[in-house]
């Protein structure tokens, strides 16, 4: 009896520690990144977010220069505005294109397709969520980039005199529009699956009542189902946005990896914050003053804060949303 109680206590302790592990890991990651990023913040200050130049400075100089009490290579300047613009731009394109497609797909799956067919199609769409991001990159390079270069881009560019940002040159197909498109495809399964689950949990009676009162099926959706799922849907969209903000590999492969300018049109090569960390870490290590690595840590901190905020908000919305329906939505 005593032994079993001891085991129980041990089990309780070990499981408790394990349950705290995500929190601990999160705190450690945050702490380390902040510690790493602090010198870059001292060096650059707020112009880190507004500057356009990413320049590690003269690597062949005799010694480091000192600015604001920290050392960096002479001429160094770290501004990430182009990466911020690239991240926001590509992820907003993704939302603009991905959200309607995802939500409409969920509508069709729940209300239009016979449930036997939906049972076959749903796993296919979920498979889309499981495809590795490098495979998305591969597909985007082989299919999407030529499509943008030769078809979509030239067509959109003809609208250039109406919306200047759409004007050419279209370039090689590697750039913001293609990145946005592939990110859009990547967030579709996340949003579609959540919306489908939400719709399936809308209570049946009010829907049938509305139909009986003579509403068209579309009006039932708009006036009965949508109010139930509104907050959950919003949460799912923000969740997809967070995913698009943090995506690295697919963007890295098709964004064109440009820096030191803000994209002049929709087709220009860009870099995102995530892809920049991946591409520049190698070269940042050659900085003898170590400041370039600190600056990358500051990008990582920025990205971490942004994605954590979007996630926090999304989860809150989804929790509130599941309260609307009265059922737990995972």
């Amino acid at each position: 009896m005593r032994r079993s109680r001891l085991w129980g206590r041990l089990f309780y302790g070990v499981t408790g520690f394990s349950a705290a592990m995500p929190l601990l890991v999160l705190l450690v990651i945050g702490g380390v990144l902040f510690y790493d990023a602090y010198p870059a913040w001292r060096f650059q200050g707020f112009s880190f977010f507004t500057g356009i130049d990413w320049n590690m400075g003269n690597m062949y100089a005799n010694g480091p220069m000192t600015q604001n009490g920290v050392q960096a290579a002479p001429g160094a300047s770290f501004g990430i505005l182009p990466f911020i613009v690239g991240t926001l731009g590509s992820s907003l394109i993704a939302l603009l294109l991905g959200v309607p497609v995802a939500v409409l797909t969920a509508f069709a799956l729940v209300y239009r397709v016979p449930s036997r067919v939906a049972a076959v199609l749903s796993p296919l769409i979920e498979l889309l969520a499981g495809i590795p991001s490098v495979v998305y990159g591969l597909w985007a390079l082989a299919v999407l980039a030529p499509f943008v270069e030769f078809q979509l881009g030239p067509w959109l560019a003809t609208l250039g005199h109406v919306v200047p940002y759409l004007a050419g040159p279209v370039g090689t197909g590697l750039g913001m529009l293609t990145s946005g498109l592939v990110l859009g495809v990547m967030i579709v399964p996340i949003i579609a699956a959540t919306t489908r689950d939400l719709l399936l949990q809308v209570p049946r009676l009010p829907m049938e009542g509305a139909l009986a009162l003579g509403m068209t099926p579309a009006e039932c959706l708009r006036f009965i189902a949508l109010p139930y799922i509104r907050r959950g849907l919003f949460g799912a969209i923000i969740l997809g946005w967070g995913r698009a903000l943090g995506e690295t590999m697919a963007v890295l492969m098709i964004s064109g990896n440009a820096d030191n300018y803000t994209p002049p049109n929709l087709y220009s090569p860009i870099s995102t914050m995530a892809s920049t960390i991946a591409t520049l870490l190698d070269s940042a290590l050659t900085d003898f003053s170590g400041m370039a690595v600190h600056a990358l840590a500051l990008i990582a901190v920025t990205l971490l804060i942004i994605t954590m905020l979007t996630n926090l908000f999304a989860r809150l919305m989804m929790q509130l949303g599941s309260r609307d329906i009265g059922v737990e939505v995972s």
Partner: peptide, 13 residues
Amino acid sequence: VMAGVPSIVIGYF
């Protein structure tokens, strides 16, 4: 929230 941390941030860490 931890599931939403970008994988490159974990890689950098």
